[in-house]
Write a protein that binds this DNA or RNA. Structure first.
Lengths: 190, 190
DNA sequence: GTCTATAGGTGGATAGAC
DNA sequence: GTCTATCCACCTATAGAC
């Protein structure tokens, strides 16, 4: 077992949830301070500026996401099963009444500092890269069928899942997300 | 020709663009005042609170959207052509580097006042209702094919388009949206 | 309807003691 | 590392003159 999470990690945990539920412009250091029972000033020791906190947030989120994708690769071999598990990650987020961190930031794109913009896109690039691999594998072994390039399908898939989760969350209906995700994946059946 | 837009309408025009590019939490009365060259206090005469402005914004947006849908019904008879034009409305928004007003608000759902939440969902309900009509028409005359209910397909469609536009805007690539939209509609070909 | 002036609050951020 | 104290910019909103 790891030691008790250090303060920086706990700050990130709280901030992550806040961004996923309220957006980067929808929370303040005061919110984190209250939840962690420290003063706002203490937070600035760990993350000098809010933009720094935001950047570290995306980095950690992507690292965790990439780990989850590696786990899928290790546990599943069938391409369609991999996609099913990929969608399940999203579904868990919706079930927790959250939005994908980077999906949320994509909406706030117009107000984000440059470093956060770049890291947000890097997250989507990583997602699409992984999906392209799975799609090509599935096309090769005839378990998945699609027209056009794997890259186009991957981008379409990410957009559909992000959009579905955004709207499902507004209705508080996980079923809405699940139905849309299942339908989207069904369109790739061989 | 209509007379010069009155002040309330001009405020709404400016605020609409601000919400679509920066989000409801990403702009202030000061931004509108600067663009309109009036003082912040003047704005409160027209919209006492920001929540009022937000509510009027959604109402007008939905009314304009519904009008656009009626125009599609009047000009096109083929169901697939209607869907094509529906997607074209979204595409124009992306081309203008904006996000759908209600798609943006869906992301900010967690911080919105109740009236705005309700009106935002009403917008999506209206979208889905119109789409259900088109889908049923297309299924009846064999121009569109899908499994499950028309309602499920409509919800999936709205989510896919909103998500695609959100991500495409972050990349500044209209082509990304167009490719995803075309692919989604292609999945409904009879 | 629009203005000046201002209230009252919150935002992110810093200095310096402990 | 965390605190107190504080700064200053900005926010939404109101009162009252014009």
């Amino acid at each position: 077992m790891a030691a008790v999470a250090d303060t920086s990690q706990r700050i990130l945990d709280i901030a992550e949830r806040l961004v996923q539920t309220r957006g980067f412009n929808g929370f303040s250091y005061a919110d984190i301070a209250q939840a962690l029972k420290v003063t706002k000033a203490s937070l600035h020791y760990h993350f000098p500026a809010k933009a720094d906190l935001g950047a570290r947030l995306i980095e950690r989120y992507e690292a965790n996401f990439v780990r989850a994708l590696a786990k899928i690769d290790a546990q599943a071999s069938d391409a369609r099963e991999k996609l099913r598990r990929y969608a399940a990650i999203y579904e868990d987020v919706v079930r927790d009444n959250r939005m994908c961190l980077c999906g949320m930031l994509a909406a706030e794109y117009g107000t984000l500092p440059k470093p956060m913009r770049d890291e947000m896109r890097h997250f989507f690039d990583a997602n699409e890269k992984w999906l392209v691999g799975v799609l090509q594998q599935g096309r090769k072994d005839k378990t998945i069928r699609f027209s056009g390039t794997a890259s186009e399908v991957a981008q379409s898939l990410v957009g559909a899942l992000e959009g579905a989760m955004m709207i499902a969350r507004s209705y508080g209906e996980v079923g809405r997300f699940k139905a849309a995700a299942d339908r989207t994946l069904a369109g790739l059946a061989a």
